[in-house]
């Protein structure tokens, strides 16, 4: 096994699995290198939050392992509760809902959390809350959803974390707040030692800023790798109902026929087997997820 610090991996997830009575997560495998943003995508209920909770140690996976910050070193001393805690203090977390007491004020939350982080930086926290226009005396329950996300971000960015893990930070936010968050993430990775794992179903947020994507569908991993490679691998196609032979139609992923035509996507490498009169264009992430989801249902 390589020393991860040399390859610059900040997070390694290997063969992660978790069994629930109504849902199974299988073989989730991905690497997040230092200095990059990874988007974690898939429809609701695909297993994104389960994976994130396993990474954070909030639930215990049934299979596989999660390695944080380069310590998969056979020579390294075994993990102790202290070393585990020290590692987790290097992660900044933003969950769907804050895990703090909702009667606490912004100021109280900072006071309660600070001792858990050896590198807590109160000055930075003050800067972020004034940048986000968060008033220190407001109670958590009095904050809008956007403000709650910003408060969690302010905490996550105020203890010199090396890895930010965000679970649906932008869902339910307006475009202005979403843009601010994307801007902050770009700013965060302008330091080449820091990385972001960012789950979302609002793919517009990722289309530009994500370097890597991990895509899961129904508890299974469909893709993990560079975003550009994924988007260049497929092409959106549309055409008339009698443009395709049945063999050609089998190449279309997420085929949908309607009264005046069909649409779907295909592998870019299959394009030459299809008639030239079809409309072809680059696929967006949203389309990719929809077609993959449909394709999966059609094959099931």
């Amino acid at each position: 096994m390589n020393d991860l610090s040399e390859t610059g991996l900040i997070l390694k997830v290997q063969g992660l699995g978790k069994h629930y009575p109504s849902f199974d997560l299988h073989d989730i495998d991905f690497d997040l290198p230092q200095g990059y943003i990874m988007g974690f995508i898939g429809p609701n209920g695909a297993g994104k939050t389960t994976t994130i909770k396993s990474i954070l140690g909030l639930i215990r996976p049934d299979q596989g392992q999660v390695t944080l910050f380069a310590s998969i070193n056979p020579a390294a001393p075994p993990e102790t509760p202290q070393s585990c805690l020290a590692k987790h203090s290097r992660i900044g977390v933003v969950m769907d809902r804050p895990l703090y007491n909702e009667d606490w004020t912004v100021r109280q939350i900072a006071r309660v959390l600070a001792p858990f982080y050896p590198k807590w930086d109160d000055q930075k926290f003050q800067q972020y809350i004034s940048r986000f226009a968060l008033s220190p005396d407001k109670k958590l329950k009095e904050l809008s959803r956007g403000m709650q996300v910003k408060l969690q971000l302010a905490v996550a960015l105020s203890h010199h974390a090396d890895l930010l893990i965000l679970d649906e930070p932008t869902s339910g936010l307006d475009p202005v707040a979403r843009d601010e968050i994307c801007d902050l993430l770009c700013e965060f990775v302008s330091d080449p030692h820091k990385s972001v794992l960012f789950s979302t179903h609002i793919t517009a947020d990722l289309e530009k800023i994500a370097d890597y994507l991990t895509f899961i569908l129904n508890g299974r991993m469909v893709y993990s790798g560079s975003k550009d490679d994924l988007l260049e691998k497929y092409v959106r196609v549309a055409g008339g109902l009698d443009d395709l032979t049945p063999q050609q139609q089998a190449l279309i992923i997420g085929y949908r026929a309607y009264s005046s035509g069909f649409e779907g996507m295909c592998l870019a490498s299959h394009l030459q087997q299809l008639p030239r009169q079809l409309l072809t264009e680059p696929v967006t992430l949203d389309e990719l997820i929809v077609y993959m989801h449909k394709g999966e249902a059609q094959h099931a």
């Binding site: 200095g35 990059y36 990775v189 302008s190 994500a210 370097d211 890597y212 560079s226």
Partner: peptide, 17 residues
């Protein structure tokens, strides 16, 4: 690379490429 990625709000890989 990282400065331009940050300014244009695009991924580091895009600029690297």
């Amino acid at each position: 690379i990282r400065q331009l990625a940050r300014d244009l709000q695009v991924s580091v890989i895009t600029i690297t490429r």
